[in-house]
């Protein structure tokens, strides 16, 4: 038996919006640790890892580990029927082939339940080793989204370079080239507006902008984003979900042939 009650139901809607452009079907894994997901996009270029820790739920009951295969677009269709202030409870019985989403309005005058069919999804979990990154950039998530959107109107790929000077995002296309440099800036009114660069050594990697733009669908989940870079490793783009966990995106770099 599984019963997860999330007071901030809108958070689950945002989580779905952050994943469904990238992933069609995925297994949600439920354990004592929390509600999690790991899935690759259909071309196996990007991977998304979600964790919503059990402590972040108002009520969390998961009698045994359970993996529930869901179509994310269908799940999103159901969650869109919840009000933004609604409390969402996810329920499933052992051995059933469906999951129920219950929506309660804040003053309890409206209660709805939506039952969704589960699906069998073959997916293998990948081991993501802990790595030391050559550079870690933390910046406002809205700024990162703006840069990815702006550059994708010029080119298809971005070179992200971190040096002592800052982090540089560069692209080139048929109409011309673009470079955006963000310097470290800790002297801001609010900490979430800061750009912080921790660099062990300079690093420069090339990525497809299409995927980075998909990652920025997570922007409503967090004011800041952390970009971890190392040569010969996928970039990690992480959005922390306050008091709950994170959504992390891994993107394999492009290399010169």
């Amino acid at each position: 038996m599984l019963e997860l009650r999330l007071v901030q139901g809108s958070l689950l809607k945002k989580v779905l919006d952050a994943m469904r452009e990238l992933v069609n079907d995925a297994n949600f894994d439920c354990s004592a640790t929390g509600f999690s997901l790991q899935a690759m996009d259909s071309s196996h270029v990007a991977l998304v890892a979600l964790l919503l820790r059990s402590e972040g739920f108002e009520h969390y009951r998961c009698d045994r580990n359970l993996s529930m295969g869901m179509n994310l677009n269908n799940m999103s269709k159901m969650l869109r029927c919840a009000g933004n202030d609604d409390i969402i409870t996810i329920k499933a019985d052992d051995g059933t082939d469906s999951v129920t989403f219950m929506f309660e309005s804040p003053n309890q005058d409206k209660i709805a339940d939506f039952e969704m069919k589960l699906m069998d999804i073959d997916s293998e979990h990948l081991g993501i080793p802990d790595a030391e990154y050559q550079a870690i950039v933390r910046m406002p998530s809205s700024e990162f989204a703006r840069i990815c959107k702006d550059l994708s109107s010029i080119g298809d790929t971005v070179v992200i370079s971190v040096t002592k000077e800052g982090v540089k995002f560069s692209t080139a296309g048929d109409i011309g080239t673009a470079n955006i440099v963000c310097r470290q800036n800790k002297t801001v009114d609010k900490p979430e507006e800061a750009t912080i660069i921790e660099m062990q050594e300079p690093v420069s990697l090339t990525f497809a902008l299409r995927y980075l733009n998909s990652f920025t669908k997570a922007t409503p989940l967090s004011d800041t984003v952390t970009i971890s870079l190392s040569s010969e490793l996928p970039v990690v783009v992480e959005y922390k979900i306050a008091e709950m966990g994170y959504i992390r995106y891994y993107l394999a770099p492009k290399i010169e042939e």
Binding site: A208, A252, K254
Partner: peptide
């Protein structure tokens, strides 16, 4: 033109 790599090149199945 740079070639896109896949995730499985970096992360192995558990």
């Amino acid at each position: 033109k740079p070639k896109q790599q896949v995730i499985s090149r970096f992360f192995a199945p558990k």
